[in-house]
Amino acid sequence: MPTTVHEFAWPDRVVIGTIGVPGQRTFYLQVRAGKQLVSIALEKQQSAQLAEKIDEILDQLIALEGNPFSVPRGTPVELVDNDQLETVEEQFRTGVMSLGWDPTTAQIVIEAYPLTEVDPEDDGILVDDDDADASEVLRVSMPVGTARAFAKRTREIVGAGRPLCVLCGQPIDADGHTCTLPEA
Rank of each mutant, 00 (worst) to 15 (best):
L61S: 03
C168Y: 13
A184P: 09
D81V: 06
G34N: 07
V118G: 01
D131N: 14
A151W: 01
P143E: 11
D81A: 11
T3M: 12
K44G: 02
L61T: 06
R13K: 13
D129Q: 06
G66T: 04
L58M: 02
G169D: 08
S98I: 01
T105W: 01
I172H: 03
Q46R: 03
V144A: 05
D123R: 13
L167H: 13
D59R: 13
L79A: 09
P103N: 02
G124S: 02
W10G: 00
L64C: 09
T154I: 09
L29M: 06
P114W: 04
P11Y: 06
R155A: 07
R32T: 13
T178F: 08
Q45T: 00
Y113E: 11
V109N: 00
E136I: 03
V158R: 02
D130L: 14
L167Y: 15
H6N: 10
Q91M: 06
I157H: 07
L61M: 04
G176Y: 10
L115A: 09
W10Y: 07
S98V: 02
I54C: 03
G66S: 12
L50W: 01
A63G: 13
S141G: 12
A51C: 03
I54V: 12
I19Y: 07
R32M: 12
S98E: 10
P120V: 03
Q107F: 00
V21G: 03
S135L: 12
